[in-house]
Design a protein around this nucleic acid. Structure first.
Length: 572
DNA sequence: AGCTAGTACTCAC
DNA sequence: GTACTAGCT
């Protein structure tokens, strides 16, 4: 939702620019915007979780834009969303239901054979999942693109980076579609950046300094501006009925103080003014000012802006609304993309895996991002696959039978079973001209993700879980085109043979040859204690962990398409 | 004039 | 998440 009507209201201050303006500078990117847009190019594939490269087109979209920035010598800093703020309004159930309805309608159209109508409906059903985010993180890692997973809102983290000096790792501007960045006090924000690098920019200082410009913010400071945003209605607090951006601005201009505006509003609105509105507004403004963010240098959480005395006087428990505190190690693990910020599960070396949470209440964003029905994830792109004719892919008859099977899985998301198909995560779209990968880097990564990953925690209550996953030994990079397949049988609830067969079938279809020779297996037990920092009770669970790796050596030679940056821009 | 609520859109072969 | 708009106060 952002700040209701803020961008329209601020239109006079929003000017067209080209990102070239930021050549040589560091620029922050609100990953959610691009993930969401990119998802449109493959919404059906994402919803159905089909196998194949088309599902990863959102990565293509994202990386093409990263490449665009790099072409203009901009240093992109990708910021991803982390956990959810406790105070976030629970407006999501409605959207979630709509998505589900669109998904069901899309499946119906698909059964009828009306692919066009289905595609349209899938576009309304698609949402950004944490699997997608993590998949992106893996590609960013492999491409050496700087990224950070915010402890909570990416917006707050971006605003924090924007407040830092360049030498401290600060950024000169933020690219986003979200008006919240302004409420957080981001100095320079670029909206609606297109594929050529054109966008619309708002410089906050220009707003405060402008004379003879309407609407006028001459007597505003950042706090009043943020208060205006909250009054107009934001994610943390809906506005008082009848108050929108114009009236919010008028009130703040006139009374120059949050307290006075609130008391006037109270007498004016009478019964329409909610009892706890004043305290909620002050809290919401505080979140925009002091939200918890990650300090990359100190490697711990800190506040976007140092706490005021009145906040410092509060007992620590009452500061939870700024984002619950996280221990430095947890905060760092989240920031570096090693731990899922919502479930607190360690990410698998190759992919994301998790069952839907069984906690009674899940917020909208939580459901949206943790992938309510997209529990299967694949990263199995190979160079071979990249050679497949797109036409042929489209003609594959998989949309009939296989998707019905998938649909069953979708309708029973609680089944404690999933199949994770993984491949070399470093493989980025083959049409990607900036694919430069150094082998030693890859090996370093593999070490970093080594056996410690056996200590992963799994956020389920299942017992006796068998985890088969690819062993991250250095060898596998010698056969980076090889494919790994992981099957997790979390319970005996479901007969897994069907799924396994599907996998085998896929392997054949894709010409995958598994050689038993290089299968490595490690088996053992690990005891895991998961400390759920946000609200839930700590758990200790015991899992049987089995690791195996399958690599195929005799893969076709990689296509050595010499794709230069110029090639890429010619295609644009 | 401004707020509310409903609809349409984001990609790109 | 946004933009646009018809209809209401």
């Amino acid at each position: 939702m952002g700040i209701k009507d803020l961008l329209r209201f601020m239109k006079p201050y929003i000017l067209p620019i080209h990102i070239q303006k930021y050549a040589g500078k560091r620029v922050g990117i609100d990953a959610y915007s691009w993930l969401h847009k990119g998802a449109y190019s493959c919404s059906m594939e994402l919803c159905l979780d089909t196998d194949g490269k088309k599902k990863l087109r959102y990565i293509d979209y994202f990386m093409h834009r990263i490449n665009l920035l790099q072409h203009y010598e901009i240093i992109p800093i990708v910021v991803l969303d982390g956990g959810h703020m406790p105070c976030k309004a629970a407006t999501g159930d409605e959207r979630q239901r709509k998505r589900k309805a669109n998904f069901d309608a899309a499946m119906a159209k698909l059964k009828e054979g009306n692919v066009g109508a289905a595609t349209e409906l899938f576009q309304r059903a698609v949402s950004v999942t944490s699997s997608m985010a993590h998949q992106l993180v893996e590609v960013l890692k492999s491409e050496n693109v700087e990224f950070i997973v915010a402890p909570y809102e990416a917006d707050a983290q971006l605003a924090y980076l924007s407040s830092l000096e360049l030498e401290q790792g600060g950024i000169a501007a933020v690219i986003t579609e979200d008006s919240d960045l302004l409420a957080y006090g981001c100095k320079a924000v670029i909206f609606k950046m297109d594929r050529y690098g054109k966008g619309e920019e708002l410089i906050l200082d220009n707003v405060f300094q402008a004379v003879d410009q309407k609407p006028s913010f001459q007597n505003f400071d950042q706090e009043l501006f943020t208060a205006m945003c909250v009054l107009a209605g934001c994610d943390f607090l809906p506005s008082v009925p009848g108050v929108g951006i114009s009236r919010a601005h008028a009130f703040i201009s006139k009374y120059q103080s949050v307290e006075r505006v609130l008391s006037v509003l109270k007498t004016k609105k009478g019964k329409l003014f909610p009892d706890n509105y004043s305290s909620s507004l002050v809290e919401a403004v505080s979140v925009f000012q002091h939200a918890r963010v990650y300090d990359f240098d100190a490697k711990k959480l800190k506040y976007l802006k140092p706490l005021s005395q009145s906040l410092l006087d509060l007992p620590v428990e009452q500061l939870e609304f700024l984002g619950p505190d996280l221990t430095p190690s947890v905060a760092a693990a989240i920031a570096e993309g090693k731990v899922d910020p919502i479930t607190m599960e360690a990410f698998n070396r190759f992919s994301v895996s998790k069952t839907p949470l069984k906690t009674p209440v899940r917020s909208f964003k939580e459901q949206e991002k943790s992938g309510s029905f997209l529990e299967r994830i694949e990263l199995k792109r190979t160079a071979d696959e990249a050679m497949i004719d797109p036409e042929a892919v489209l003609k594959e008859p998989k949309y009939s039978k296989q998707d019905l099977d998938l649909h069953k899985l979708v309708l029973q998301p609680n089944k404690d079973q999933m199949v994770i198909r993984t491949g070399n995560p470093s493989l980025i779209p083959n049409n990607n001209p900036f694919k430069i990968r150094k082998t030693d880097e890859m090996n370093m990564e593999s070490e970093e993700y080594g056996l410690q990953q056996l200590k992963v925690s799994f956020g389920t209550k299942s017992e006796g879980m068998d985890v088969s996953c690819s062993s991250p030994n250095s060898k596998e990079h010698d056969c980076s085109e090889g494919q790994k397949e992981v099957i997790i049988d979390l319970s005996k609830l479901v007969d897994d043979s069907g799924v396994k067969q599907d996998c085998e079938k896929n392997r054949e279809e894709e010409g995958f040859e598994s050689t038993e020779d290089d299968v490595v297996e490690i088996q053992g037990h690990v005891n895991i204690t998961t400390k759920r920092v946000r609200g839930a009770k700590p758990r200790t669970e015991s899992f049987k962990v089995k690791t195996s790796s399958t690599c195929s050596e005799n893969k076709k030679a990689k296509i050595n398409k010499k794709s230069s940056i110029l090639d890429f821009f010619h295609r644009l």
